[in-house]
Design a protein around this nucleic acid. Structure first.
Length: 308
DNA sequence: AATCCGTGGGA
DNA sequence: TTCCCAAGGAT
């Protein structure tokens, strides 16, 4: 497995030996639920703009949201900014090296804490992400997919499989994750290219179908869609946007919002760009209230804007 | 424990 | 076209 990784690992900038722990932390948060190819350009811009936690912490959180671009789940940008602030305040500006310290940072959960401890500091940690879960489920468990949610049994299995040697454990975590990302994929696994196909319990069992159907997340007409549209406007606006304009006005009336915002182009305001809303006014107000409560937007006398 | 939280590329 | 889902976290 680790031999295969040495030969086939993708050349990703956060895997460069010279990459700082901060660079690795930023990459791990950006990669939460977002594909590598979309993270790459934003990660480069972030590290150039904010090479250390102190650089980011010195700016208002809205700058983090603005430069998050369209990676999705912009609250991650907010939490990364909060993590940078905590690192400056509580760790002398240096990303902490232990799992427990990392876990205490905003936006850092069990996966990210283990990943940063392992990949940035060479620690022996049990890293469990969606790729590793799927590889274990197939290779060892013989099922097409892991359980819908992480189980204690899965964690125990991952702990048992982790090599004792510290340096080897780091390579193991990276290798299993990479195998899941590029070979043992969710939909159409490339079993012909798999280095451990002869040991795969799922292959041995005849590649049985999944035992359940993953339930997809609804999207059209949800608050998430509305929130996304509102934040897209605020991200592109160069000055505060008055509430009624934000919610209702055409986007090309000189409020600083470019008309080339992809899903807003040619439409009249964020609401009109959305279809199938049950109660548009209520939903817009509710979505905006949610953004304000989450700190993704703030309201001034001049109007609404990203925090800062 | 179940739900919410964005986005866009590929099957 | 629609659907799936990608290095999760917080509540």
């Amino acid at each position: 497995m680790t031999d295969w990784f040495r030969e086939n690992a993708r050349d990703l900038p956060w895997r460069d030996p010279g990459c700082s722990p901060w660079g690795i932390l930023v990459s791990e948060v950006m990669l939460q639920q977002t594909p590598v190819v979309r993270v790459l350009p934003v990660w480069r811009e972030w590290l150039e703009r904010w090479p250390t936690p102190a650089h980011l912490a010195a700016e208002p959180s809205g700058a983090a949201v603005r430069h998050w671009g369209r990676l999705g789940y912009p609250r991650r940008a907010l939490r990364l900014h909060a993590a940078a602030t905590a690192i400056v305040a509580g760790h002398a500006g240096e990303v902490p090296a232990t799992y427990d310290e990392l876990l205490s940072l905003p936006g850092v959960g069990t996966y990210t804490a283990a990943a940063v401890a392992a990949f940035a500091f060479g620690r022996r940690e049990t890293v469990v992400d969606t790729n590793i879960r799927r590889v274990h489920a197939r290779l060892v468990g013989g099922t097409a997919l892991p359980a819908p949610a992480l189980t204690a049994a899965e964690t125990r299995r991952a702990v048992a499989l982790l090599p004792d040697d510290e340096a080897l454990s780091v390579q193991w975590n990276a290798a299993v994750m990479e195998l899941g990302a590029v070979v043992c994929t969710a939909r159409a696994p490339l079993c012909d290219a798999c280095p451990v196909i002869d040991a795969c319990a799922w292959i041995a069992a005849g590649r049985p179908a999944p035992e359940y159907v993953p339930k997809g997340q609804s999207w059209a007409g949800t608050d998430r869609q509305v929130r996304g549209a509102i934040v897209a406007v605020l991200r592109h606006a160069d000055s505060p946007v008055a509430r009624p304009i934000l919610l209702w006005a055409p986007v090309d009336l000189g409020i600083g919002v470019p008309v080339d915002v992809p899903h807003l182009a040619g439409h009249a305001g964020p609401l009109a760009a959305l279809h199938g809303l049950q109660a548009p006014t209520e939903q817009l107000e509710r979505a905006l209230a949610g953004l304000l409560a989450d700190g993704l937007a703030e309201e001034t006398e001049a109007g609404l804007r990203l925090p800062g």
